[in-house]
Design a protein around this nucleic acid. Structure first.
Length: 256
DNA sequence: ATGCCTCAGCTCCTGAGA
């Protein structure tokens, strides 16, 4: 089973790239973030023609998430039960025997800001809900744009970016709390190239200089961990003419 | 501190992203 996550920064702009990428990478599940469109604009037909079912949860201008799957998705849940939120940030479903959660974590803008406080409360809401979700669905994958780095290895300039957004102790505390409840960073289960990142700023030739952050993650539950055979970042689409600022992350599992 | 780049929208500037 192959799963992937990709923040595509507007599905309107990136639909051709998503279809191209799926043709080259026929995954079973693709979680998308930052659709930036309302549900009535979602390209159901194009996705269907590509051979995929689609579950989506969008809003105008910002945010928006979707799960594309080669087999039907069931028990679809939008956002975090128990956490009131007016933004479309997560979508969950059972697909191929796995509970899949695709999420677009809040950015947080700047430590100390209102948006940062919202990010921390969202993270706490996610953590409290996940505890139950893991008990109900032991085979679980949480993937998406976390907007948090685990540690210095995920940051191109750990000194210059110390305690800035995506790199603060408060954010990383919440990320480690997810690991403490039995989730595992699939990417680090394997030897990876030094300076592996999933996002590069559009400005200052950041991609060419590999000035990036690893903020897109795939976490797997303990029940799935032994089944993981690979996890990689695919930098290929970042080289496209009008790329998303994020690259997809891919996970491969043995038979579930 | 600001610009640098990209995208959406009550669009020719602004807010937000990260």
């Amino acid at each position: 089973m192959k799963l992937a996550t990709w923040n595509i920064n507007s599905l309107t702009v990136r639909l051709p790239q998503v279809l191209d990428w799926l043709a080259a990478n026929p995954v079973d599940v693709l979680a998308l973030q930052e659709l930036k469109m309302t549900d009535d604009k979602f390209p159901v037909d194009a996705i269907k023609q590509a051979g995929y079912h689609a579950q989506f949860f969008g809003q105008k201008t910002y945010n928006g998430v979707a799960l594309l799957s080669s087999t039907p998705a069931t028990e679809v849940v939008k956002n975090i039960p128990g956490f009131a939120d007016d933004m479309a940030r997560s979508i969950s479903a059972n697909i191929g025997g796995v509970r899949v959660i695709g999420a677009y974590f809040p950015n947080g803008q700047e430590p100390g800001s209102d948006k940062f406080e919202y990010k921390l409360s969202w993270l706490k809401g996610l953590r409290l809900w996940l505890r139950e979700e893991l008990a109900t669905h032991p085979k679980l994958v949480l993937m998406g744009d976390y907007n948090i780095t685990f540690d210095d290895a995920d940051v191109w300039d750990p000194v210059g970016l110390k305690d800035t957004i995506h790199c603060t102790e408060e954010e990383r505390y919440e990320l480690r709390a997810l690991l403490a409840m039995g989730l595992h960073d699939a990417f680090r289960l394997f030897k990876q190239p030094d300076k592996s990142y999933s996002w590069w700023d559009y400005r200052d030739f950041s991609f060419r200089r590999n000035r990036g952050l690893r903020i897109d993650h795939i976490l797997v539950s303990s029940a799935l961990k032994p089944l993981v055979t690979s996890c990689v970042i695919d930098k290929t689409p970042r080289k496209n003419e009008r790329p998303s600022d994020h690259a997809p992350v891919l996970l491969e599992l043995g038979p579930v």
